[in-house]
Structure formats: structure tokens, C-alpha cells
Amino acid sequence: MQEPEKVLEIRSVDRSFGGLRALKEVSLHVNRGEIFGLVGPNGSGKTTIVNSVTGFYPPDKGDILFEGRSIKGMAPHRVARLGIARTFQNLALFRGMSVLDNILVGRHIHMHPSALAALFYWVWAEREELRHRDIVEETIDFLQLQDVRDTPIEIVPLGLQKRIELARALVSEPRMLILDEPMAGMNQEEKEYMARFILDAREERGLTVLLIEHHMDVVSALCDRMTVLSYGEQIAGGKPAEALSNPRVIEAYLGTKGREHAA
């Protein structure tokens, strides 16, 4: 059997904020075509991992490789050009634009934005705009966003906004997709839709997915492999069934469950 290709590799990454050590020697790798789950209670460092991969918080120690090449310390807009797209835990769509325009910005790295093209729109920009519009419409159909296409983003319901962010990430044609709690705040039906979209996206576009979640049911249903974080430390890993039955995971979760109820 062929050795699986590592798309993303995180090697002993450490990151502190002031005195707080948010990541402690975290190592993991994601194989091509995999959906890899990153799980852990709130504040365990999941988003911090995403932020170090995408260039917002470069790691203090360790290395991060994408398709064999180190991307440690690379600026976010350069990381995007390599073929990594992500969504944010707290929505990050652009107000003042329609849903369509929000998704169209996702095509940025494939377009040639320039002031001159805007001035000579009919000569230089129109064909490019229409061509990319066609590509974006495919994703709009795929994610069933036709009805809200021309709606200003401010008045779109939250559950749909998550889907629009996914659309924006998908239209950039990434090879690796990082989803930071894509189902937070969704009801059961919306969650099932989102799960379907993630599976289909991987199927149709050959994506590799790093999925951050703290809903266990979602993770065990979607992920091929996973790792569990607690206070910045990896406490378990492997196939979902193995990892989730690990006593340390149960303890970490029950512990925080109690805390969450108290809060």
C-alpha cells in the first residue's frame, strides 16, 4: 500500500500569550483527502492552532509544513495563495456587500484586481468578472444559496452566514480547507446540512479538511482521524472511536461540561 501524502504537518508547535502557554508541543499531520478532527473544550487551543497555520499567530517554537514546505511565519495573504482556505469561529463576512460580492471576493487570488481595469471596465474587466461569476454560481448552487444571492449580508440569518463563509472559502479552490467550529450555534437540521456539504465538498473537490469542533457527535460522524486537546496539550488521538473512549478525554469533557453548566 502507498504511504499517504501529508498535506499539512504541524511539528512540536508551541505558542504562548503572555504567561499563558496556549499550545504545548502540539504535533499532528493531515493526509490528502482526509477529514481530520481537532477537538477539545473551549479554550483548549484549537483556534490558536488554526491561527498559527494561517499566519496570524506564528508559533514560538516548532514548524508548520504545507505540502512539504515550511509556512511558519508566512503572512496570512501568502498562505492563502498556497491553497489554504479557512472559515472563522465568529463569522467574518464583509458588511456593506451583498452575499454574491462576499463570495466573489473569495476569487481574489484568481483575479487581477487593478484600478485601471476598473476605469476601462468594458475592455479589461467585464469578461473576467463574468467568467468568475460563472464559477461562483456553481458554488452558490452547490450550497443552495440562490435565494439570498442579492441580499445584503447584514440581513442574512446566522445559520446561512456560516454557509456563505464556507462558499467564500470554497470558491478560492483551496486544496486544504480549515473549518473553525462551522456548526456553532446551529440547530440540528442546519448541522446536518452543513455536515452533508462538508462531505460533498471533499468528495467532489478532493479537498483535505481540518475540522475544528467541540460537538462529539459531529466529529465522530465526519472525521477519519482526530486529535483531542486540553489546555494546549494533546491528550489523545487516532480514530474517533479510540480517541473518544480514552479516559483522559472523558475526564476533560465531563470536567468542562460541569464548568459550562456552572457558567
Binding site: A75, A80, A85, F94, G96, M97, H108, M111, P113, E129
Partner: peptide, 21 residues
Amino acid sequence: TSFGRALVAVREKDFAAAIIG
């Protein structure tokens, strides 16, 4: 055009603009 969308994206959320390139 993509030029204007990029400007608005940076105005609204520069980190989210950066992550799409």
C-alpha cells in the same frame, strides 16, 4: 470589480480579507 471588493473587504475586516489572499 475585484479591486473595489478587495478595498471594502480590507475596510470591513482586514484579517478576513488577508485569509482570502
